[in-house]
Design a protein around this nucleic acid. Structure first.
Length: 585
RNA sequence: GCCAGCGUGGCGCAACGGCAGCGCAAUUGAUUUGUAAUCAAUAGGUUACCGGUUCAAAUCCGGUCGCUGGCUCCA
């Protein structure tokens, strides 16, 4: 009998897929204890614990998959049944996690369970009519997951799967994953010789090779220019402070587990005992900027003060969280703190959003915003929270940015906007953040003098546009699939002489381009032109300049673009103006 | 940090108890090419580290370190 899942919603299909998977595991490993098995974006999972010390290995996925297909073939119905709480407790007597869930449900409500073959689950439903409708699925991976997402709870095994309405959707999804893997920035970083990681440093500490360093520098130079245009001033602050400073800022109390501390010997005291000073490496740039603000007296006329820094911070994050450049232990933030008066707050937030918009559209990112408001536990006056939250929300409205509100998700010291951008293959990333901070101006006792010469506390806006240079670099690499636009490419052009007689002319061209500030390489190997082109293509160099007898005679270069192919002979001036036109304006 | 998996020339991989191999890259030589890969030769490895089992270990076992996928956390 043909069962077509097309008319059922995806999350129902996925939820039912999770049940089929659980039923398969139940049959293969009687006595398995189950956690939860919901539908998620792109698929489903089930958390479970095999009996005894048994553990699932990757090879089990194929076995479970085969068993699932048997269950699908049998086309077993999903049967719903209502139960009292007591009956449910009896039914799930050997399922401790299910019992825990039952206990949390209201007493007077009847529970529902769904049966599917040997597997019965506490479940609200709804489900597909029968297992025959679970068709286009695949088990993806095995992972560990804490019961209830709580690291104090036991760890279960989680099986992830994906499931769809149509065969084409499943294929498309698997192709998407393949494409994402091809674009993995770690892979591109290796292939394009941009960065690496040494076991001696560990996963969180990228080593930028010359080409990677060049890209980062280009990105930074570009952003720095934009910031100066927008009235920012640049600061530089130390990477290390005495621990006292971190106690003052509050980071010691709230952030100590993620910080790098070290003792420095300071000689001996009078009794001959070794003395030490305790320092910590900065996990954030904020305190330095507070100290700079506090180093001078400020008039209301000085505000707003927009202070930025490409500040490298180090955070001792849990070893398991590192992920290439996306999540490092040392990274550089494009950090800024804006000190302003209450009457300037609206305008400053708008300026931040304008900058976000400029930056994101430069790279062709679409984005959405999330506004997080006052949490229950928070500091500061109602007036300030209202003022700052309104400033954020009004700016979002004024810019017509698509945003959602996350009530009570703000930091205890202020509300914030997070920007989520969408890359070339539809994945979203969080980069920019704009947050008000009432805590640090307080902690550092920052003031300005008002028109009537009284002291006022400035409002402080903390913002990062790219977020972290490393993460943004990683996102850019994946967004462009490694083919960076010419203004960011570490090598903009490779000169390809057709034979060794052309080397002289090639060196001329190289000198002229390098003199004009072009990042150019000469491929002088005595290899066939085609091989040199292939190499340049693989390195994703935007332009190839092919030089033969014709070009030498005319004083031109044959231009080949990485994606557009052969563009014919052009003068060096034309090539230069082409490069210029490709820079963001 | 936790769960699972994986560590073999610079990179990508093979060998899975019995002489550690292939491709790319590199080096040298030949070749001089018109828009995605010319040919040949050479060099390169205490198979992450420590210990154990065995006549014999890259391979099996234990430990350490590192990495990867997730979970928790987060820019």
């Amino acid at each position: 009998m043909a069962r077509n899942p097309k008319r059922f919603p995806l999350d129902m299909i996925r939820h039912s897929s999770a049940h089929v998977m659980a039923a398969a595991v139940q049959e293969l490993h009687p006595g398995t204890v189950f956690g939860i098995g919901p539908s998620i974006e792109d698929g489903f999972y089930y958390d479970l614990q095999l009996p005894g010390d048994e553990k699932l290995g990757p090879e089990d996925l194929a076995i479970i998959d085969a068993k699932m297909r048997e269950i699908v073939e049998a086309d077993l119905p999903f049967e719903e049944e209502e139960l009292s709480k007591d009956d449910a407790r009896k039914l799930f007597a050997d399922q401790p996690f299910k019992l825990e869930l039952i206990d949390e449900l209201p007493d007077d409500e009847a529970l529902t369970v769904f049966r599917c073959g040997a597997f019965t689950d506490l479940c609200r439903g709804p489900h597909l009519p029968s297992t025959g409708y679970v068709k286009y699925f695949q088990l993806m991976k095995l992972a560990g997951a804490y019961w209830r997402g709580d690291s104090d709870q036991p760890m279960l095994q989680r099986i992830y799967g994906t499931s769809w309405q149509k065969a084409g959707q499943l294929t498309a999804y698997l192709e998407f994953l393949e494409e994402a893997e091809k674009r993995d920035h770690r892979r591109l970083g290796k292939e394009l010789d941009l960065f690496s990681f040494s076991e001696l440093g560990g996963a969180g500490f990228p080593l930028y090779h010359p080409k990677g360093a060049r890209v980062l520098q280009l990105l930074q130079d570009w952003l720095r220019d934009e910031l100066y245009k927008r009235g920012y001033v640049e600061a530089r602050t130390p990477h290390v402070y005495r621990v006292e400073m971190w106690k003052m800022s509050g980071h010691f109390d709230n952030y100590k587990d993620d910080m790098y501390f070290f003792d420095v010997p300071e000689g001996k005291d009078k009794e001959g005992k070794e003395r030490f000073s305790e320092f910590a490496i900065k996990p954030m740039n904020c305190p330095g900027h507070m100290l700079i603000y506090g180093a001078n007296l400020h008039s209301y006329r000085d505000l707003p003060l927009r202070m930025f820094e490409f500040g490298t911070v180090y955070r001792h994050e849990l070893s398991g969280v590192a992920h290439g450049l996306m999540r490092a232990r040392g990274f550089t933030q494009d950090d800024a703190h804006i000190f302003c008066r209450p009457d300037q707050v609206n305008d400053e937030v708008k300026r931040c959003l304008e900058l976000v918009d400029y930056v994101m559209s430069t790279f062709g990112f679409e984005y959405t915003a999330e506004l997080s408001t006052r949490p229950e536990k928070s500091m500061g006056s109602d007036e300030t929270w209202e003022l700052t939250t309104n400033a954020l929300e009004n700016a979002l409205k004024e810019y017509g940015i698509d945003y959602s509100v996350s009530e009570g998700d703000g930091a205890f010291y202020g509300p914030k906007i997070d920007i989520h951008l969408k890359d070339a293959i539809g994945r979203t990333w969080q980069c920019s953040t704009i947050q008000f901070d009432a805590l640090l101006p307080e902690r550092f006792d920052l003031e300005y003098r008002t028109a009537d010469n009284t002291a006022e506390r400035p409002l402080m806006l903390h913002r990062a546009i790219l977020g972290s240079m490393e993460r943004f670099f990683g996102i850019l690499l994946e967004h462009y699939g490694g083919g960076l636009p010419s203004w960011l490419a570490p090598t903009q052009a490779v000169i390809i002489p057709i034979n060794d007689d052309m080397i002289g002319y090639a060196e001329d061209v190289q000198a002229r381009l390098a003199g004009a500030g072009v990042r150019v390489e000469l491929d002088g190997a005595s290899a066939p032109m085609k091989a040199k082109i292939a190499k340049a293509q693989q390195q994703k160099v935007p332009y190839m300049l092919v030089l033969g007898k014709r070009e030498a005679e005319e004083g031109k270069v044959s231009l080949r673009h990485r994606t557009e192919g052969d563009l014919g002979a052009v003068s060096i001036e034309d090539f230069l103006s082409r490069l210029t036109s490709e820079k963001p304006q």
